[in-house]
Design a protein around this nucleic acid. Structure first.
Length: 303
DNA sequence: ATACAGGCTCGCC
DNA sequence: GGCGAGCCTGTA
């Protein structure tokens, strides 16, 4: 591939591979030395060489916005709380950026995410793209845009279930209907303050606080939004409340919002990625088993 | 093989 | 208004 076939743009403080592997987006696939995917309806190839990106001709502006290359990452990281846990995560995740995803695509993807691991989410959303999305050719490959709400609304629940969505199919379908009908005007919701936006999102089928916070963070640029999932909960309890006997979800929530502050979402993503990538699977599984064992022990000693 | 995942919802108390 | 079970499917 000739250099002239690409647009080149600078990307200081950015690590493309880490960002794409951090659990905020599920579509990008490796191709050659880079990745293929779509930004909105445009097929895009992007590869990183040090502090510059080479991208499909004409896509530079989209890429810059999508990957939030304008976020002042150095400053954001400097403002993290200066504790050992946060510092380790910051050093581990250098170049990880919170992206700006199209709202519907992000919302729909996270509706499918409940009780699923990243690999599953990738499969389900790829299946949705391949069956319902617009097809493009790029570098001899086929890439598919994420299907619009209108397109998904026309599907039957059975067709969505065929994408391995299980019980999530009904939620996705009903949310697509609300979006299509304009009852949920996702673009207009950009104007809402955080609390109201969260409330609106939580009013959609299949959307609770965790999913709502993901969508706020990854699509609505609400960098305070702090999704709490089982990984983050584990990290927070171990690192910040090692001896708390009972810590209610509400107290944990209050701690996150006040302690991590303005860029809490970034802090969350760094803690999350660090925990997920630096905890060997076997160790995580072993920890789980031992927790279960001790739960059994507690129960039997109660009886 | 068989629990169990990066949750949400509804029904029960 | 808090708590727990059930939901589908792929994976370890």
């Amino acid at each position: 591939m000739q250099r002239g076939d690409f647009n080149v743009l600078p990307c200081p403080d950015f690590d493309l591979a880490v960002t794409l592997d951090s659990g905020q987006v599920f579509q990008w696939e490796q191709h050659g030395g880079g990745f293929v995917g779509t930004i909105g309806n445009s097929p895009v190839y992007v590869e990183q060489h040090g502090a510059e990106l080479r991208v499909t001709l004409g896509a530079a502006a989209h890429v810059e916005r999508y990957f939030a290359l304008d976020h002042p990452l150095g400053e954001i990281c400097r403002l993290f709380p200066a504790d050992p846990t946060m510092t380790a995560a910051r050093d581990y995740c250098r170049g990880l950026r919170i992206m700006r995803q199209p709202i519907w695509e992000c919302l729909a993807s996270f509706i499918t995410s409940s009780m699923k691991q990243v690999a599953h989410i990738r499969q389900m959303t790829r299946s949705l793209r391949e069956r319902f999305g617009e097809r493009h050719q790029l570098l001899g490959r086929e890439v598919y845009a994420f299907p619009s709400a209108k397109k998904l609304e026309q599907a039957s629940e059975a067709e969505l279930r065929a994408c391995a969505l299980g019980y999530r199919a009904g939620n996705l379908l009903r949310t697509a209907q609300l979006v299509r009908a304009g009852e949920a005007n996702l673009e207009a919701w950009r104007e809402l303050p955080d609390e109201e936006l969260r409330a609106r999102l939580c009013g959609l089928p299949g959307v609770g606080p965790k999913v709502a916070n993901c969508v706020m963070l990854f699509a609505y640029e609400r960098l305070r939004a702090f999704p709490i999932d089982v990984w983050i909960e584990r990290v927070l309890k171990q690192q910040y409340f090692p001896r708390a006997r009972k810590l209610t979800p509400q107290r944990l929530r209050e701690f996150c919002d006040s302690y991590f502050g303005e860029h809490g979402g970034y802090a969350q993503q760094y803690l999350f990625h660090h925990a997920r990538k630096s905890t060997p699977r076997r160790r995580a599984a072993a920890a789980k088993r031992s927790r279960r064992r001790s739960a059994v022990v507690r129960k039997s000693s109660l009886a």
